[in-house]
Design a protein around this nucleic acid. Structure first.
Lengths: 198, 198
DNA sequence: CTAGCATTTGTCCATATGGACAAGTCAAAT
DNA sequence: ATTTGACTTGTCCATATGGACAAATGCTAG
């Protein structure tokens, strides 16, 4: 009888079902079209459950986002990357996953980014995630520069900003056009980055 | 009495007021939260006007998008660019505009990209716009390669895919975090692209 | 066994929404 | 002046929606 799963205020089981359902629907319908009824139905709980577990629709959707991101962001794998080349491989895998299995999470991310302009909590959280990501990339770039793999003339911060933008931009464009040659874009990125080395 | 503005089937004036109002609201509230009443109110026309001029909400919003893009996409200026360096300057200007005056249009673009997955007409149109843009970039890259400004080892198509992604990615990230150093990202991009030249 | 509690469930309601429509308005053609 | 047809305006309605709530349920501590 795990105490954490059924004791205390708020039944975590139902909350999580609602969170998962909400995350799916945000990705499928877009944030603004999600209704509390649709969420409850997909979660397999009655509509009234929403009122009990959340203060309102916006809290439900926001929490669903944050929970989904909290589970899915792979900070550990990230720490094991050796350099930019590994990073681009990593991005490639992420993009392919994001376009195959994880479509829900991918779409959710863009919906959340849009909504973040209207929801302070969401904005702070997403800004922090992006900042962490960029900081990790900066470290990778500096490591490669120390090893002579990347030109020391590059601004590590600038390159990190650029790389983060490329990743999300490619994902966004690929969602819009499934025929887009993502690999071609990434290959170009790799070539361009390392063209000036020895 | 200009014949084009008030004769013929459909009053262009009212339609355009509705289109403009819809485009604004999509950017501000997100596609799914726009209501026909809010659009009519902002346009300064009664709610009933929507039913007369459009077949329904989705047609109104879609048409508003396409009209906004049709007016605002600067294909002419684009043709006057000399090479990649001009292009990056151009992107820089676009980004700064998109974050200052044109915020409405910028947000509208991302909303439209998300909605395009659920609206065939919108998807086709946006795919075509992106394809045109990338094709133009390919031409620029090839010109620079012929002039020896860019390494001929780069795949022009790949670079174009990457550049398009960088632009939209930077814009998206900058909307999320107004403190983001866009110039730093673009400078890095410029440096990286031309680092291998002579 | 029972009282107390969190949780569940079904229902109710005020409001918002999309869309339809009929009556009204206006300008040009006859 | 009258007619005609496009456009406008205000109103109406069926439905959807978010949220509140009371009654039911089930579990635990005493």
């Amino acid at each position: 009888m795990p105490e954490s799963s059924r004791r205390g205020p708020g039944s975590e089981a139902t909350r999580e079902k609602l969170n998962a359902a909400a995350a799916e629907l945000i990705g499928e319908l877009g944030w603004g079209r999600v209704t509390t009824r649709a969420v409850a139905e997909r979660a397999g709980v009655p509509h009234g459950a929403v009122s009990y577990h959340f203060r309102g629709k916006q809290e439900l959707l926001t929490e669903a986002c944050l929970a989904a991101f909290g589970n899915a962001v792979p900070f550990e794998e990230f720490a094991s990357l050796g350099g930019i080349d590994d990073l681009i491989d990593f991005i490639a895998v992420e993009l392919e996953q994001g376009l195959a299995d994880n479509t829900v999470l991918t779409r959710l991310m863009f919906e959340a980014m849009r909504e973040a302009e209207r929801d302070d909590r969401l904005r702070e959280r997403l800004q922090a995630m992006m900042a962490d990501y960029r900081q990790a990339v900066v470290t990778l770039v500096q490591a490669d520069q120390a090893r002579g793999v990347l030109s020391p003339a590059f601004s590590a911060e600038g390159v990190a900003i650029m790389l983060a933008a490329v990743g999300d931009g490619l994902l966004l464009h690929a969602l819009l056009d499934p025929g887009l040659d993502i690999r071609g874009g990434l290959t170009a990125l790799r070539t361009v980055l390392t063209a000036s080395q020895g």
